[in-house]
Design a protein around this nucleic acid. Structure first.
Lengths: 223, 223
DNA sequence: CTCGTTCCAAAACAAACGTTAGATAGAGTA
DNA sequence: TACTCTATCTAACGTTTGTTTTGGAACGAG
């Protein structure tokens, strides 16, 4: 609202860290982000207080403003980092496939990458998924490009697989992507690491995504 | 916190409505609930203000307390009504099936009932699903019984179908239920009624749930 | 008309929120 | 030693939150 210019601002770009990359304060910044991600994931954005984040990070509430301009700015960074995390996990797994891999194998690798990235290194990506639905349109706008990038990655994989006849083509690719990512994303709502491993669960869900709940080779299958 | 006893409380149970079922104030009560459900669905619980609810309902913020004891109490009623709504929709559709219906047909009816109940008469059920993840454990505890009832309905259907060999049995029923309901629930995050009908989408998703993204009659698997 | 009940508006309440301002301790530099 | 910059604390600001209090229309019963 107000024009908040510093009284004496000679340097136009103060730059985040004073010296080098691993600046002394960079650790604090990272700590704040990690604490925020954890709390956002558990309680959502609005329910999480700057004082909670500060306590979790071992500092005082006001000190946060040395590193971030606002609570919204913290959210944006957590959101972006979360999507980037799973996006990188997926791209890495797909890129590691041999060139002879089928489209189905690429999708399978992507599903596993998405799930593992979500359930393992969880706070940022889980926070990203769980809070996205409850933020203002202004915040969504700032975050949208990264999300659309990731969506495009899936759309291309699905469309290519459809054209190659490796997955069904009677359902729009976009519907398929929304359904597919939704199935994966919802796991963060109920997954409990103490109850069964991530790997086993991920493969179960992968099977369900590909073949549904129908029996593999039904003895009395209708034709 | 404080002991808030009315100064002169002769009647132990004032009862909600003074006269009959359709009391004069029952309409206001319902209006408050409807407004709250709509806002909870759109913004989440914490982000929704009592003053917003009041404005939406056409009354004053303080007046809400004539009908409800607290904001939490409103949430609980919205949550319960939401689950009850889809639960009834599902039970009705399943009950309307002929006695000769297979387990697969029962599950298909349930899936459609869940989706249609969710996407059509949406505010209460959508609010219930979207806010459940962000409320305190105390609130969850009050709401849990109704939710578990509904979960049990699905578990029984799935287990019966597994025993009959009509759906795959190589994946735990509980995992299957969580995956299945998750896929359906996530639709409220992206469904847009202006872009395609509810019925068509529901059947697409139903197909995906049953047969996955694999082609219907694949090159490998012919009937 | 009078009384009691029902329903709600108006205004205020304390607590908590995001945010800002000023002071301060410590490290580096000259 | 004196000065500067960095990173933080302390304390407060104004606003908004859920909630409470008070008072008074509206209305039916006697």
């Amino acid at each position: 609202m107000e024009c908040t210019e510093k009284t004496a601002s000679e340097k136009a770009e103060p730059l985040v860290s004073s010296r080098g990359e691993g600046g002394r304060s960079a650790a604090s910044r990272a700590q704040i982000l990690a604490s925020a991600a954890k709390l956002f994931r558990e309680q959502g954005y609005v329910a999480t207080t700057l004082r909670q984040i500060a306590t979790e990070a071992g500092i005082q509430a006001g000190s946060i403003y040395y590193h971030f301009a606002s609570k919204d700015d913290i959210l944006i960074e957590v959101l972006d980092a979360g999507i980037a995390s799973v996006s990188n996990a997926v791209r890495a797994r797909v890129a590691n496939l041999p060139p002879t891999a089928t489209h189905r194998e690429r999708i399978r690798a992507a599903v596993l990458g998405h799930l593992l990235g979500l359930l393992r290194h969880g706070d940022f990506s889980s926070a990203s998924i769980r809070t996205y639905g409850q933020i203002s349109v202004a915040l969504k706008k700032r975050h949208r490009p990264i999300r659309e990038d990731y969506a495009r990655l899936w759309d291309e994989m699905i469309e290519n697989a459809q054209k190659a006849g490796e997955i069904r083509a009677d359902i729009p690719a976009k519907t398929m992507r929304l359904y597919l990512l939704g199935s994966l994303n919802w796991t963060v709502e109920w997954f409990n690491p103490r109850r069964g491993g991530v790997q086993a669960l991920s493969e179960n869900i992968c099977d369900l995504v590909f073949d549904g709940i129908s029996p593999e080779a039904g003895p009395l299958m209708k034709c």
